[in-house]
Write a protein that binds this DNA or RNA. Structure first.
Length: 567
RNA sequence: UGGGGUGUCGACAAGCGGUAAGUCACAGGACUUUGGCUCCUGCAUUCGGAGGUUCGAAUCCUCCCACCCCAGCCA
């Protein structure tokens, strides 16, 4: 076995794995698994589990299986199987030959059930669903034994065989484990092992009309695959005694189940049910809406998989409930994008500027650095002309305190171009809205430096008006206005705190011409604005659509906020 | 009132009997042709609470408190 490849701090699970390796508990093997049910799209909470399971396998020289927990055909679909595989691969993990389906074990699972019956540890129960619930008792009162609990092995065998043969209607009987109806752990009160369910399975078709339950299937699947560490979330801690019971009664290979706390993130929800509600309620455009915390949503939003992986490393793994500030995710995102993404100029809300002393027909190619963080990314030429666009918010007719940008009579630098000074403001006669700025430039400042050493307080991005590319830009913000939507008390529930401003569509943005051929999925930093990527679904050549992945840190915005607060 | 689990800075999270890492956030400052990046500085005399053991406790013991999960023929 190889030693851990990275020097990351060992969380309690890695500590267990390392210790097991040291004591040779599993014969030097490390086998984990990521076991999604194919009934929805993966989200960033799943990424935590994927990174944990595949990460441990990688670090300790083991293997991680991708296993679909497909025991409930009424909810599952191949659409999800495909998206899940795509997402895991996109994150950068490889299960190699280890792609499994719990449904592949149905025959063996059935045989094991027969074994349990023969051992007197399982019985066919005719109680209705409601009756089973009543017999189960409550959290504080013990349950009562089913009147069918004492059936003979022969009768159970016969009945179970006939359940499989389709002799009984859906829901009429179940196979139950015979454990302890008085257990303080509800999961041990004769849990259901098999139910009759006539549903076409996406893989086994109509072969079965009985399907095994999670608790029975999961432990045996782990056992069959030789998993060493079966890592799951905390809510399954109560199920561990049952996991152990099944394997012990059957006397088969017995992996160790270990639980960790699932991820919670501020300003979003991470439950398949709620995510599905957002999709079906039309609150988002789909599972891959860039505002969704799904991996497909984050991908479309422009998140690189490396950023998500890095995030999963940094949040750690522990057992306590936690709520990670989405600001941490965004910080790691910027950290990643800052290093790798080329800079570009794009004006989101254009304001026309005419440089009066600049020749009418002249177009100059200004040399711009592609990424100051990485000189190897080189330079590019960006055309400059008499008419340009700047950002509307970079001009204030009456500049407030600490506003360094353009204002009447004030001089600023146009990035990589010239110093310009605002000499006049043109307004719409009727509305009074500023529609154009008249400026002059200083030819001596070409490239952005003044030979006389004079300084300006601000540098603005700009785009040549005649050479600009028009594009649509979608600005995204947090899906939920409040940090924890799950705490919403409104009768509309978590949806009551959906952020009404989570999406703003800007249609006549002007971008530098180098962006004309930008490919779907490619990422850029629009200088002074944020990181953007070409939408992979709606963007077309000639009709580009960009998604804002995340804004840049904005000190000015914070200054304004503070000023506003002070009054 | 049953069973299981968890409590260390606003948020994550190290620490495992020798005197509270780190990261995000936040607040200052330096630098700056992105109000970006980077860099400095500050930010828990205290570890859910109360007792106890010990020369010494976030770490060990006792009691208490708070929060989370469990009553699907879902996973």
């Amino acid at each position: 076995m190889t030693a851990p490849a990275t020097t990351r701090a060992a969380d309690f699970i890695r500590t267990i794995v390392a210790e097991d390796l040291r004591t040779n508990k599993w014969g030097g093997r490390v086998v984990t698994r990521f076991p999604p049910e194919p009934n929805g799209y993966l989200h960033i909470g799943h990424a935590k589990s994927i990174c944990l399971n595949f990460g441990i396998a990688e670090e300790f020289g083991g293997a991680c299986h991708l296993r679909f927990d497909d025991t409930n055909p009424s909810k599952e679909d191949t659409e999800y199987i495909e998206s899940i595989q795509e997402d895991v691969r996109w994150l950068g993990f490889d299960w190699g030959e280890n792609l499994f389906y719990a449904s592949d074990y149905f025959d063996r699972l059935y045989a094991y059930a027969v074994q349990l019956i023969k051992k007197g540890k399982a019985y066919v129960c005719d109680l209705s669903q409601e009756e089973i619930r009543e017999y189960r008792g409550t959290l504080t009162e013990p349950g009562r034994e089913s009147p069918y609990r004492g059936r003979s092995v022969e009768e159970n065998l016969d009945l179970f065989e006939r359940m499989r043969a389709g002799e009984f209607p859906d829901g009429s009987r179940v196979l139950r484990a015979k454990i302890d109806m008085a257990s303080g752990n509800l999961n041990m009160r004769d849990p259901v092992l098999y139910r009759i369910l006539r549903a076409k399975h996406h893989r086994t078709g109509d072969k079965w009309c009985i399907y095994p339950m999670y608790d029975y299937t999961h432990c045996l699947s782990d056992s069959i695959e030789g998993v060493t560490h079966s890592i799951c979330t905390m809510e399954f801690e109560d199920h561990r005694p049952l996991y152990d019971w099944v394997l012990d009664e059957l006397g088969v290979y017995h992996p160790q189940q270990i639980e960790f706390a699932r991820l919670n993130l501020t300003h979003t929800v991470l439950s398949k049910r709620r995510l599905l509600e957002l999709v079906e309620g039309g609150h988002v455009t789909g599972w891959d809406d860039p505002r969704m915390p799904t991996l497909s949503g984050l991908r479309r939003r422009g998140y690189p998989p490396e950023a998500i992986r890095r995030f999963c490393e940094r949040i750690g793994v522990a057992k306590r409930d936690s709520m990670v500030d989405i600001a941490l995710l965004e910080h790691i995102l910027r950290e990643d994008l800052n290093r790798r993404v080329p800079r570009v100029m794009g004006v989101l809300r254009p304001l026309r500027v005419v440089i009066e002393n600049y020749p009418e027909d002249r177009i100059e190619e200004m040399e711009c650095v592609n990424n100051p963080e990485d000189p190897a990314m080189g330079v590019r030429k960006v055309p400059f002309s008499r008419e340009i666009y700047i950002e509307r918010e970079d001009f204030r007719e009456e500049p407030p305190r600490k506003f360094y940008r353009l204002a009447p009579g004030r001089e600023v630098r146009l990035r990589y171009a010239y110093f310009i000074k605002c000499v006049d403001v043109v307004k719409d006669d009727k509305t009074g809205e500023v529609i154009e700025l008249r400026c002059t430039y200083d030819p001596e400042t070409r490239g952005g430096d003044a030979p006389d050493g004079r300084k300006v307080k601000a540098t603005l991005h700009w785009v040549s008006a005649p050479r600009a590319v028009e594009a649509e830009v979608r600005l995204y913000d947090h899906l939920f206005a409040q940090p924890n939507p799950n705490e919403a008390t409104d009768e509309k529930g978590f949806k009551a705190c959906l952020n009404p401003n989570s999406l703003a569509v800007l249609t006549s943005c002007r971008l530098e011409p180098s962006l004309r051929e930008a490919r779907p999925g490619s990422r850029f930093q629009f200088e002074r604005q944020g990181y953007f990527c070409v939408d992979s679904r709606d963007s077309r050549p000639g009709a580009l659509v960009f998604n804002r992945t995340v804004t840049l840190r904005d000190t000015w915005a914070r200054v304004q906020k503070a000023q506003k607060k002070q009054g």
